[in-house]
């Protein structure tokens, strides 16, 4: 077994070279390179965490903006609805008032027309009376040779017209 047989002749060489070479490994690799590698990993983890946090923040602010937009939108919609309602009410009111004024105009015209018809009728009746009175005067003079005054004839005609 060389490990035991050679032990006394090789131990110093093994110790020396192991210390030299493992020392190189420890100081160059372990102390020099490992911390840099771990720093890289740490930086990457930090960057990922930061990016995730930034993404979360952006998402939160987007949610907030959306909420604000929704509120504004609702307010706008309400305002528009109110405007429409107001316009509708205004239009209705003006229509009603115009309708009312038209109605009164029509009523007035109707009344005027009726009045003029009545007047015409009265005039016509008076004309008829006149004509009838003259006719009656004429007829009585021609038939009975009685001179009837205009006034008598008229009253007689009136009496006859009233009695039908």
């Amino acid at each position: 077994m060389p490990q035991i047989d050679q032990m006394f002749e090789i131990w110093s060489s093994q110790l020396f070279w192991l210390l030299v070479i493992f020392g190189f490994v420890y100081f160059v690799v372990g102390r020099g390179m490992v911390p840099k590698v771990m720093d890289t990993v740490g930086l990457r983890d930090k960057q990922i965490a930061d990016d995730l946090a930034a993404a979360q923040a952006a998402r939160d602010s987007a949610d907030e903006a959306e909420e604000a937009w929704r509120q504004r939108e609702n307010a706008n919609r309400e305002a528009a609805q109110a405007l429409v309602n107001e316009a509708k009410a205004k239009a209705q009111a003006s229509t009603e008032s115009r309708l009312a004024s038209a109605q009164t105009g029509i009523d007035a015209q109707l009344a005027e027309a009726e009045a003029s018809i009545e007047a015409s009728r009265a005039e016509a009746a008076a004309e008829i009376e006149n004509v009838a009175a003259e006719a009656a005067q004429d007829i009585t003079q021609r038939l009975a040779n009685i001179k009837v005054t205009k006034t008598e004839a008229r009253s007689a005609v009136k009496k006859a017209m009233v009695h039908g």
Binding site: S12, Q14, W17, I21, V25, V29
Partner: peptide, 25 residues
């Protein structure tokens, strides 16, 4: 005695391989 032996040679090779491996990192 601190003769450079085959054992020391393979220690050296191991250290160099490890160093080269770490350069990639």
């Amino acid at each position: 005695n601190i003769a450079f032996t085959n054992s020391a040679l393979w220690m050296l090779i191991t250290a160099v391989v490890l160093w080269v491996f770490m350069i990639g990192g």
